[in-house]
Amino acid sequence: MDTVIDVHNISKVYNPDTIPVYAVNNVHLHVDRGEFTALVGPSGSGKTTLLNILGGLDHPTSGTVVINGIDITNLSSNKLIDFRLHNIGFVFQSFNLIPVLTARENVEFIMLLQNVPKKERNQRVIALLNEVGLSDKMDVRPAQLSGGQQQRVAVARALASKPQFILADEPTANLDSASAFNLLDIMAKLNREENMTFIFSTHDQRVIERARRVITLVDGSIASDTAQTKTD
């Protein structure tokens, strides 16, 4: 299998000089292309911190993070921004779409940052919004979309940059059941049909049930890492 994420011995310590708090403690992790992985654990277990480190949004105190063969641990902030742009897709719990842009523009924005030609951008925006079932909401701003619709735009946005993998932090936490199932269906379909790697932190049992691999964090350490045979 093709390894996308290779994490060695990473720890994230807050207040190292006074009362050290280990948000992530000595974590080893391999994620292969095409995985559909859930990070679970109680609040404060380090799920979000681990996702932030995997996404290059936060630096580990120790250890290395290798994404697609590139050690991102010591990249400068500018290089990390560029790395994220071309390699990682993000889906946030609160959607975090740019409120002044329409659904189409939110998706297109990433490609603009990547300097993708206009024709290709247009084709891809239409394809992605079709894929998440929002072809009729292209010119609508986020405020006029439901939570579920906004999160689907966020998934389309995450896919727009053709990333190596997508990190989703509690993607269904702010969604009703129908919207959550709908979103999971889309994510699972993308994983199945396009071999897109998904790693998501969640408390949501509905999401956990759909994952093929479940990593449980307790106090910043991996307590269990199990493969699930029952998938979507």
Binding site: G55, L57, S77, N78, I81, D82, R84, L85, H86, F90, F92, N96, I98, P99, F109, I110, L113, Q114, R157, S161
Partner: peptide
Amino acid sequence: TREIGVLMALGMNKLK
């Protein structure tokens, strides 16, 4: 602040 953080997370560099 949050929006600017998202823009940076998504890949908007400091110059832009």
